[in-house]
Simulated scan of single mutants.
Amino acid sequence: MKLLMFHDDPPFWFETLRNLGLAAYGGSDVGEVIATASRVTPGDYDSWHDAWLSTAERLEAEERGSHPVSARDGLLRASSYYRAAEFFLHGHPEDPRIDHAYERGVSCFRDAIAHLPGVMPVEIPYEDTALHGPQPSTGTGRPSGRTGRTWSVPSWTSSPRTRVSIPPASRCSASVSAATSRPARPPTRRAWQPSSPSTVSSTPSPP
């Protein structure tokens, strides 16, 4: 496909295109994606982070406390933009910006689904931790076996139940490691501090 932006930076264009694709499902807005990407300096991972974080924080601040439908839609998009912000930072796992963007994105997503009728967050026990996800409030997840567990989990749509298989921990860890590997990035050129809590509130908007 022809690169419509970032002509000399295919990774940046690929991620921009991925975020454009989320618009079909309410996970982004075409205008917001283009406006954000236009503020990014090609090849500059810090610039990428700053642009997407700025859009995510602005959107989150605007939508919290708004009408439930607007809050749902805006917070869902904000969660996508927070994820985009930290995407290229994983060459340095100790970078505090990764956890900040991740935590804000999770908070936005959870508060967004709180405004989806009949959907509730669930925790599925797995080894010494839990897998998090949403499901219709009338569904149940049933683990079977110690390893290679399988749950029957209702999907988000009206389609029949979807079988979700979780591999044993060793295979799961290898798969996650391969899937989350990122290209290394240059060292950060400046210190970074998260936004003041007063700027972005984590309090869900009233129903």
Rank of each mutant, 00 (worst) to 15 (best):
A174Q: 12
S38G: 01
R185M: 04
P183I: 08
R110L: 13
R185P: 00
G148V: 05
H92G: 11
T157P: 08
Q135W: 14
F12E: 04
Y126E: 04
V164K: 07
P194N: 01
S70F: 14
A23H: 10
A35V: 03
M1F: 02
S66A: 15
P197N: 06
P11A: 11
T36P: 01
P206Q: 05
I166C: 08
T203N: 08
T55K: 14
R163H: 12
R161C: 15
V164N: 06
R189D: 00
R161N: 15
A179F: 04
A51E: 00
D46I: 05
H7W: 02
P11F: 01
D111M: 01
Y126P: 01
P125W: 02
L3N: 00
P125I: 03
G145L: 12
S28D: 01
C108Y: 09
Q135G: 13
W192F: 07
A114F: 01
S198I: 08
L59P: 01
G21H: 09
P11Q: 08
P10W: 02
A174P: 00
F14H: 03
L131I: 15
P136Y: 14
D50F: 08
R171C: 02
C172Y: 12
R110W: 11
G74V: 12
F14N: 01
G65W: 09
Y25K: 11
P42Y: 06
Q193P: 00
D99P: 09
D9Y: 00
D95R: 15
S155M: 06
A114K: 10
S152I: 05
A114M: 07
M120R: 15
Y25V: 12
P10G: 02
M120Y: 13
W192P: 05
P207I: 07
S198Y: 04
P143R: 10
E103R: 07
F88K: 09
T36F: 02
S195I: 01
Q193T: 12
S79M: 04
S38W: 01
S205C: 07
A84P: 02
W151T: 06
R182P: 00
P207A: 13
P143D: 08
A51F: 02
P167F: 05
F12M: 08
P10E: 03
S195V: 03
G148S: 10
R190H: 07
A184Y: 00
P167W: 07
R161V: 15
P204E: 14
R149A: 09
L59T: 07
S28K: 02
P11G: 07
I166Q: 12
T147S: 12
S196V: 04
G21P: 03
G74L: 13
A184N: 08
A101F: 05
R182H: 03
T55S: 14
R163Q: 14
D44Y: 04
G91T: 05
E127T: 08
A174V: 04
G139N: 13
H115D: 11
T129Q: 10
L75W: 12
S177V: 04
S79D: 03
